[in-house]
């Protein structure tokens, strides 16, 4: 019995390999493909017929880039503006989340009980509250205070009034919107840092006892052990889950549209409200998110390969 199973598994593997080589379709593939096509046609019919929806795809490109008649050049419109903001926020939040996450991960492995308990509490709180609720709580309780306390609003307005604000705008977009950008980045980073922290902790704990002992035996301090021996190895090992986490961050960034950060999702809501092109707008937005996230995952997959050979 077992032998037969092994044989059929072998045959299956062989068949699969051959398929991979020739892209030959099995009869089951045909059934699935036909079924899928039928489903798509059916949904299409429903939208066109029952909902009486008239497609207006032609208006969408204009909301990605439009011709600026005064400047006489192409400028980004709603969707592209939103996409750029999403990218900006994702980059800043990733960097901040990585920094916070490393601190959190190290704290989770601390010998000090109070430090360990604090980091654990932070982590459990953020892991067991829905992200939307976290976003609201952070926004109303923390971000507002933060923006007020550092007078970020006044400072940003000052820059917005300046003449040479090109560099600032390249990095942060419209400076009048800077406070909301900061809130968005902070909220997102705090939220994601909990998960990054867990990944870092797993990495630290995967570094063997022998490494600690070897570092101790040449007289290194605890801090130096962490900095030169443990963390470099730990971070190297967690590149794949970390990459996934950053892709999640890009997707999660849509949540902060709820606190009026003008990123892609927020802009799409605006677009839908003014044009009623519900399907076209959301499909375009979905495609944009997909392109970024899928592109990132392809990129990370490429980057991982040389890393893995260096680690082992």
């Amino acid at each position: 019995m077992q032998k037969r199973l092994g044989l059929s598994l072998n045959a299956f593997a062989l068949q699969k390999r051959m398929q991979n080589r020739r892209f030959k379709l099995h009869w089951l593939d045909w059934v699935l493909l036909i079924g899928l096509t039928a489903l798509v046609v059916y949904v299409w019919q429903r939208i066109g017929g029952a909902l009486n929806y008239s497609w207006r795809w032609e208006i969408i490109p204009n909301y990605i880039v439009r011709w600026h008649t005064e400047k006489e050049q192409w400028v980004p419109n709603l969707l592209l503006q939103g996409l750029i903001t999403t990218i900006r926020i994702s980059i800043y939040a990733s960097v901040l989340a990585l920094i916070l996450g490393v601190i959190l991960g190290v704290a989770r492995c601390s010998k000090n009980l109070a430090v360990r308990m604090l980091s654990r509490t932070y982590l459990e709180l953020l892991r067991n509250i829905p992200p939307v609720v976290v976003v609201f709580i952070f926004f109303f309780f923390l971000s507002e205070q933060l923006v007020a306390a550092f007078n970020i609003e006044g400072w940003a307005r000052g820059i917005a009034r300046q003449e040479d604000k090109a560099v600032w705008e390249f990095f942060f977009g419209d400076m009048r919107r800077f406070p909301s950008l900061v809130s968005g980045v902070v909220v997102l980073a705090l939220f994601e840092s909990a998960f990054v922290g867990e990944i870092v902790r797993a990495g630290i704990q995967s570094v063997g006892k022998g490494q600690h002992e070897a570092a101790q035996s040449i007289g290194m301090t605890k801090t130096d052990q962490l900095r030169f021996i443990v963390l470099p190895q730990a971070l190297n090992k967690v590149v794949p889950p970390m990459a996934n986490q950053f892709i999640s961050l890009v997707k999660d960034s849509s949540i902060i549209s709820l606190i009026s950060v003008q990123e892609l999702t927020f802009k799409t809501v605006e677009l839908v409200a003014s044009t009623r092109a519900i399907f076209e707008a959301w499909i375009t937005t979905a495609a944009m998110y997909f392109l970024i996230c899928f592109g990132l995952s392809l990129l990370f997959r490429r980057l991982e390969k040389p890393n893995q050979t260096a680690a082992t």
Partner: peptide, 17 residues
């Protein structure tokens, strides 16, 4: 003390990175 006393381990424990 550890700066004066070296240790060689069974499993080498070199730093792989």
């Amino acid at each position: 003390l550890r700066q004066e006393v070296g240790m060689v381990f069974q499993q080498f424990n070199l730093f792989p990175h």
